[in-house]
Nucleic acid binder design. Structure first.
Length: 648
RNA sequence: GCCGGGGUAGCUCAGGGGUAGAGCAACGCACUCGUAAUGCGUAGGUCGCGGGUUCAAAUCCCGCCUCCGGCUCCA
């Protein structure tokens, strides 16, 4: 019997009903055949050697694509599990998917894996790869599978689970066998273990079964696998580059901030240079908000428990709040509980409520660089990226529902402008819609979701829908940026809130002198200033755009006798608004230059005899290894003034 | 919080029951130098904190703090 195979280019080929993806790939070309790791048949992933027995559209998955690497990594996970089960008698295995950049597998073992164990496992994996064992697919009924995996309780749970997605489809499950190792798996897999060309185990860690702390903790091993040794090396180099850019390391090298253990976990102090950087960021934020119709407000760090009860935080957010402090306790009576603020919104609401509001003053945009404190569990703290006290560029917009669409559009334009000004130009957005538990009118929700979507479309921002992921009080947009290493960070968030205006009974007077309830929008552009600066440091690898650099220019005198001239130039630059250092250290030019380069100073001015005589300087810009000699000092100053100008 | 690995000079790290080590940084002296490390010298440590074992603890044991990698959550 003959079947018709349709290829992605629309062409058709005739085959026997027992053909395989490998056969088809080979007919197209030998190079494709050797790069192929699997195929899709009418969109469904198939092993290369799994027979295709019907008319279908087939496309070949090659090893150098994300889909291809997914297959490679999934097979690598199997081979690792096989090695672990070989080496650790009594071990049982749970789940082992491919993930971004690699794979992991979770095991239940008698003792946690030690670093040396990973080497042994890697060696065993290499043997399995060398043996080039074919992966063989077969299908079992649920009953057969339960019997087959009776010794592996986590597999049994997966087989029984209706929602589980690991190889479960209808009445049967598929398994893959290579040599003596059998795993429950949906596939597809590489044709054989020998096709795993480049892999490395990365680390072991504890992980809860299904990510739930109430479940037993398993031992997870992370690995990475690639289509070639070169691709693996590139990835390892990227990790190396990332660790060189680590904001915690650069924080020390560039003297920006530190995390003294005397302070406590998750708390940072800002050194003068970090303080300067942070002030540049915050000044920019204040300036641009003022220019975009925001009014600056300020609020204290504490408020009475009553306020947090009205706002719902005590009910919904208490886990992340610091415990209450009882103040003003009299000699017999009970005092008043106060909470440190985890959010700024209730304060801004109180400002709104301070007097009656008219439709004429809406949208009212209240802005604050508000420092909030959230209790984060000790294990999750991470440099500036995850701290226990941080400052949000926070704003609450009070608007009529009629103005909401326009306001969201303006807001999104503003967000993108700000992120671009800091050097980010790749964005992705998530639109999170109404969850099962929600407050407010469903029609209003739908309208707000539509406004958010249309704002995204008008801004030409690609976005993913996250159905049901909105907060209970309103839908939201989250904006992610991609940094210089291609990593994705969530920065901005725009959240519509139907709940708080209700909680606080907010109103405004309409043009007909009736009372209506405003809609609130919570939004933060940089998110947390601390975290944002951590991301900036890593994105720019510490070589900040000149307007953000703590030191924008360093003046290097060639010898002692040029110190006076160098200092005079420094004074001129300070007057012109440039952040400058004059390096009069008793060192060679080479050493002083090296220090300034290591500190990633945007501009270095070297001055010697010729410069003193001619009122010039040698100018060496960051990233260039050729300098300009004898530049007239007036031009140097004018150029630097231009260089350090903020984007707006 | 849980699992694993760490904490020795400002930084990066070696050492491992019996007088605490290196490189860089710092400080001093000499050198006065034209685009990525001048030379010589000096100083610097309750070996994270507390308790225990021991004639003796940085080293072994216990507890705590803190950092790193994960789990979970999010700015």
């Amino acid at each position: 019997m003959s079947i018709t195979i349709t290829l992605p280019d629309g062409s058709n080929r005739q085959y026997d009903a027992s053909t395989t993806g490998y056969q088809i790939a080979s007919d197209i070309g030998p190079r494709l055949a050797s790069a192929a790791v699997a195929v899709t048949v009418d969109g469904e992933p198939y092993d290369l050697h799994r027979p295709i027995d019907r008319n279908a559209s087939v496309s070949v998955i090659t090893e150098n694509t994300e889909a291809g690497r997914h297959v490679i990594r999934h097979s690598a996970a199997h081979i690792m599990a096989q090695a672990v089960l070989d080496l650790f008698p009594g071990a049982t295995f749970a789940i082992g998917p491919a993930i971004d950049d690699g794979f992991y597998y979770d095991f239940s073992v008698e003792r946690p894996f030690a670093p040396d164990d990973l080497n042994a496992i890697e060696d065993r994996m290499a043997e399995i790869v060398a043996a080039d064992q074919p992966f063989e697919r077969s299908e079992l009924s649920i009953a057969e599978a339960l019997e087959t995996f009776a010794d592996h309780p986590f597999k049994v749970e997966i087989i029984k689970g209706v929602d589980a997605d690991e190889g479960v489809a209808g009445d049967t499950v598929s398994t893959y066998r290579n040599d003596g190792f059998l795993d429950l798996c949906r596939g597809p897999h590489l044709p054989s273990t020998g096709r795993l060309k480049a892999f490395q185990l990365m680390r072991a860690a504890g992980a809860y079964w299904r990510g739930n702390e109430d479940n037993p903790q398993l031992q997870r091993i992370y690995g990475t696998a690639w289509e070639s040794k070169k691709a693996l090396d590139d990835y390892l180099n990227m990790l190396e580059e990332a660790s060189k850019r680590d904001h915690r390391r650069l924080g020390v090298d560039l003297d920006l901030y530190s995390f003294p253990s005397e302070l406590g976990a998750g708390l940072a102090v800002w050194h003068p240079k970090g303080g300067t950087l942070r002030r540049a960021v915050e000044d920019y934020s204040r300036r641009t908000h003022a220019a975009h119709g925001y009014e600056h407000v300020m609020s204290p760090h504490l408020a009475k428990a009553d306020l947090w009860e009205t706002s719902g935080h005590v009910n919904f957010y208490r886990d992340a709040m610091y415990p209450a402090m009882e103040l003003d306790r009299g000699s017999h009576g009970k005092g008043q509980d106060y909470f440190v603020k985890p959010m700024n919104c209730p304060f801004h609401i109180l400002i709104y409520k301070a007097r009656s509001r008219s439709y004429r003053e809406l949208p009212l945009r209240l802005f604050e660089l508000g420092t909030v404190y959230r209790y984060e569990r000790s294990g999750v703290l991470h440099g500036l990226m995850r701290v226990r006290g941080f400052t949000q560029d926070d704003s609450h917009i009070f608007t009529t529902e009629e103005d909401l669409a326009d306001e969201l559009q303006r807001l999104l334009d503003f967000v993108l402008m700000v992120l671009r000004d800091f050097g980010f130009d790749e964005f992705e957005a998530d639109l999170s819609t109404r969850p099962e538990k929600y407050v407010g009118d469903p029609d209003m929700w739908e309208r707000a979701e539509a406004y958010l979507a249309s704002a995204l479309e008008t801004a030409d921002l690609s976005y993913q829908l996250a159905p049901g992921e909105g907060a209970f009080y309103g839908p939201k947009i989250d904006i992610h940026i991609k940094d210089a290493l291609g990593r994705r960070w969530q920065l901005s968030t725009i959240q519509v809130d139907f709940g708080q205006p209700e909680n606080f009974e907010l109103e405004y007077a309409t043009n007909e002198n009736t009372r209506k309830r405003p809609v609130m929008v919570h939004r933060a552009l940089l998110g947390s200033v601390e975290r944002f600066i951590g991301i900036l440091v890593e994105h720019h690898a510490g070589a900040f755009p000149a307007w953000l650099s703590p030191v924008q220019a360093t003046v290097v005198p060639v010898a002692d006798r040029h110190n006076e001239y160098a200092t005079a130039i420094g004074d001129r630059l300070v007057e012109a608004g440039v952040r400058v250092e004059v390096d009069t250290a008793d060192e060679t030019v080479g050493e002083k230059l090296r220090n300034a380069i290591t500190q990633k100073t945007p501009a270095i001015l070297v001055v010697g005899d010729n410069d003193v005589e001619n009122k010039t300087a040698g100018v060496r810009m960051r990233g260039e290894d050729k300098e300009a000699r004898g530049v007239p000092i007036e031009k140097v100053i004018a150029d630097l003034v231009e260089l350090v100008a903020p984007p707006r």
